[in-house]
Nucleic acid binder design. Structure first.
Length: 200
DNA sequence: AGAATGATCCTCT
DNA sequence: GAGGATCATTCTC
């Protein structure tokens, strides 16, 4: 949260600040694409962290995920919202919108703004094509809520995170409901995440 | 403002 | 053959 994601292509730089993301953790997470085991589509999630898992859904949209689990443990973070910073005009034109809040306030929009497609599946984030740099000091509060669009399975977990009051967070129906906590209040959730990660 | 709908196609069973 | 980690547009209140 708060990191910058940068896309270098054709000598042009596009990207921005990650303001919304969701965690998908392991085969025991019923909402994770690895919940039914290894398949061709999710195979990158079973590799080492720091690579892109890109998939296509609803006949229209690509989703950008960062593989996070150690090799053999399938886990990834879905990028759902980005505050445009680099190449804003380029991204606005690509998305055919004027307001900056419309550029990447949702996972499909975000991928389209950065021109990320199936071709970027498996990209090494330590390369110079797509990379992520640290957040610096974060002054915004981080909020936690249920994940969006996954149905009932796994919706008990508060594994969606976003920056409070940031206008580039997705406005998906259902995004605003009860069960939203500040990260501090959701500390138990965050701590369980931490335990899962560190016990790998 | 919220609900419904069509677009559109890949992946897995 | 079914369903999906969505979006933009069009509808209904």
């Amino acid at each position: 949260m708060g990191c910058h994601i940068i896309r270098q292509a054709d000598g042009l730089k596009t990207g921005g600040i990650i303001v919304e993301a969701e965690a998908y953790i392991g085969e025991d997470d019923p909402a994770c694409h690895a919940s039914h085991g290894l398949t061709e589509r999710n195979s990158i999630m079973y590799g080492p962290p720091g690579f892109l898992y890109v998939y296509f859904t609803y006949g229209n949209h690509f989703m950008i995920n960062v593989v996070t689990g150690r090799k053999g443990f399938p886990a990834a973070v879905l990028l759902r919202g980005m505050e445009p910073i680099y190449g804003v005009d380029i991204m606005a034109k690509k998305r055919n919108v004027e307001k900056s809040e419309a550029i990447a306030s949702g996972p499909g929009k975000l991928a389209a703004a950065l021109s990320v497609t199936k071709q970027d599946y498996g990209t090494d984030l330590l390369g110079n094509s797509i990379y992520i740099i640290g957040p610096g000091r974060l002054k915004d509060s981080i909020m936690a809520s249920p994940r969006i669009g996954i149905g009932a399975r796994g919706s008990d977990k508060l594994w969606r995170f976003y920056l409070k009051d940031n206008p580039h967070v997705s406005r998906h129906p259902g995004a605003i409901r009860e069960n939203i906590r500040s990260l501090n209040e959701a500390k138990r959730t965050a701590f369980s995440l931490y335990k899962i990660q560190t016990n790998l």
